[in-house]
Nucleic acid binder design. Structure first.
Lengths: 202, 202
DNA sequence: GTCTATAATTGGATAGAC
DNA sequence: GTCTATCCAATTATAGAC
């Protein structure tokens, strides 16, 4: 079941650098960048704090590397789903399923990396801030295309700019995952998504 | 213009304790609890770090006090809006306007306190975690009542459980505020809200 | 209730041996 | 590329004078 986290196979720590990034990513998705420390990573990966600095001189370097890799991974998945032969509704569901699957993994404690960083925007350096902004833009642009496609095919019924509906759906997923983490988990998020799609399709 | 932040009048630091809480709340709404320190508060309020400990022995005590006060304040506003003579659609808009106004204040850097804490759930102590959960539940329960009212009056058109739609609308607001902070601000969040209401009303 | 002073810990980061 | 050792700054928190 694909999720926002790379699969075991894809993340199977081939090298130390990847292992560090995998751990950092998991920690950020759990508690945010401010709650992620070199000490935590050190213990999880099994190397010393100083060794991490060899791969990522500063914490901002590490965050940036994780961000970049995550964005590439997500947009890869998104493009695959959205370019498929599925009908528009199924595409939106499959995309949402990534968020749901992330909540299902482990202890239901991970949300989208960019939802976490969005909350911590004020502590991020300016390249990271810009990257977060771009992730939101690019996600919404892709969603807007699928929504427009669905409207043209008569599957979705809404008035106005598809980009607005895209922004709505995206905010629902990012916010919904954060909220569902507190209670209900994947099932709860799924219910929100289905409700939104019902409104779009009737 | 009322927002999620207490108005100047209501928060005008009558006493040091309130001033500390006001500052702590603002800092959490900006960058989260992990990014809020006694040092920051000390500088903003104009007292020494040690003095803060006299009012709030531990950081968790401070967070809990802020949480409790904030929840009371928000539910006070919500109940006032939802008990008014406004039609259901107007009630939902007025509630959303609180989130929008929060983004408009100052540097567009504040989101709902509980959106921030939701992201940092894993670093919170268990009373705080429980309080976050309850805030989500209680918010959704109130929204569900208004949605049901709107459906009965024929203003809203949706199928299924009103609580699901409530969860959707709430997630949209909490997530939308986080995202709109990165770009677009209040106007952007407003567009998402209007789009959601359009889907509900047509 | 506020201050000075200080403890105890942790965080990010560097130098240099192996 | 990893380690030990160390540094410096920032936190949370306490003790005790005023």
């Amino acid at each position: 079941m694909p999720s926002l986290v790379m699969t075991r196979k894809a993340m199977a720590s081939k090298d130390t650098k990847s292992a560090i990034m995998d751990t950092a990513q998991a920690l950020i998705m759990r508690g945010g960048a401010n709650a992620m420390s070199y000490q935590d990573i050190s213990e999880a990966v099994g190397i010393r704090k100083a060794s991490i600095h060899h791969h990522f001189p500063t914490k901002d370097d590490l965050i940036e590397a994780v961000i970049e890799r995550y964005a590439d991974y997500i947009f890869g998945l998104m493009d695959e789903i959205f370019a498929s032969k599925l009908d528009p509704g199924a595409k939106l569901r499959k995309y949402a399923a990534l968020f749901e699957a992330t909540l299902s993994e482990g202890k239901c404690d991970k949300a989208c990396l960019f939802a976490m960083l969005g909350a911590e925007l004020s502590s991020l350096d300016s390249p990271a801030t810009a990257r977060v902004r771009r992730f939101y833009q690019d996600s919404e642009a892709r969603l807007a295309r699928v929504l427009e496609e669905g409207r043209e095919k008569g599957q979705f019924h809404f008035k106005g700019d598809a980009r607005r509906v895209a922004a709505m759906y995206f905010a629902l997923l990012e916010g919904g995952a954060l909220i569902a983490r507190a209670e209900g988990g994947a099932k709860r998020l799924h219910a929100m998504v289905e409700q939104a799609l019902k409104l779009l399709q009737e």
